[in-house]
Computed example of a mutant assay.
Amino acid sequence: MTIAETYARFAAREVRGVSPTYERLALAVAGDHELLALLGTLPPAKRQPNLLFGVVRLLGGPVEDPAAFHDFAVANWPAIEAEMRVRATQTNEAGRCAVLLPVLAALPQPLALLEVGASAGLCLYPDRYAYRYGDHRVGAGQPVLDCALTGTAPPTRLPEVVWRAGLDLNPLDVTDSADVAWLDALIWPEHEHRRARLREAAAVAAADPPLLVRGDLVDDLPALAAQAPSAATLVVFHTSVLYQVPAPGRDAFADVVRGRPGHWIANEAPDVLTYEALPTPPSDAHYNVLALDGTPLAWTRGHGQAITWFG
């Protein structure tokens, strides 16, 4: 897929109807030969829309007007390129806990959670947040995570979490203003509800910091998993992470995680992990596949706003 096709696909499948600003901007970049040439100087993994747009926002650039974005990006390309080369998309959307909860609540309790690609670890607190599935509410904490659930009954309890840890190549710290600024820059422009959610979830993590380890998802997973209490059910999970890992690394990770005791929850795009058969997704929008121990269970939206159960 060419860079232009990547941006056009992002506009059509990921942000259409969700972020008009980014839809307009992605379509403009897809037809902007000067910006496409600049993006072509970056490694393939560093050309993605979310990374470019997040870096421009971090540097104070405009994203509402494509012409102003073009001028800013061209004039400031050395600074933008430098940031894109060293950063990765580390969107830490606590809302994704809403699509994980039906699986987490059904596992043998208590749980020891180990998130791969944890960023700042905000998805390690599914027991501390509250959830609203239509008229059904679970939990009493903050933030309250709204999720449209179809195909199964909503969960009736929160999980009991006795240990939580995260593994990331570059863990972020919610008490570091620079790290929080990057997390904020990755939130799409119109999504003020997600900015409020970030602040509330960050307060939860800051009050009881998780164990975050800098490391590789293949080489360093076994040692971290070994620290989990043996009396708890170990759950290794990840969401919208493995697309950043080359295919051989994904296969190696799957082999490692299958060799662990406990359970494995994956929430990734359908072309990231291999499943024998998947039903037709609910629409042409971008969906992840929620799977438990290699068995697909549901289609989920990227920020946890909807789950369509088929398992």
Rank of each mutant, 00 (worst) to 15 (best):
A201D: 06
L107T: 10
C147G: 09
A148P: 01
Y131A: 08
Q90Y: 06
R197W: 02
Y125P: 06
V99M: 09
D146N: 05
A196P: 04
L212C: 07
V86R: 12
R157T: 15
L172R: 03
L124T: 06
L158K: 02
A106G: 09
L212R: 12
E115P: 11
E83M: 11
Y131Q: 04
E81H: 12
R137P: 10
V162Q: 08
C147F: 03
L172Q: 09
V180D: 00
D146F: 04
A82L: 14
V116A: 15
A205Q: 03
R132D: 15
L104I: 14
L113P: 07
P143A: 08
G215K: 05
A98W: 11
I187M: 14
D176Q: 09
E93I: 05
A106C: 09
H136K: 13
E190W: 00
L113S: 06
G117E: 09
L169I: 15
D179Y: 02
A201I: 07
A120S: 04
A105N: 05
A196K: 04
V86K: 00
V213S: 06
L100N: 10
C97T: 11
V138A: 06
V213T: 09
A88D: 04
P171A: 02
R137N: 04
I80G: 07
N170M: 10
A165F: 11
D168R: 00
A94Q: 03
P108A: 14
S177T: 14
P171I: 13
C123Y: 08
E93N: 09
G121E: 00
V74G: 13
P154N: 08
N92F: 02
A201S: 14
P155Q: 04
L183N: 00
P209R: 10
G139L: 10
R214H: 10
L113C: 14
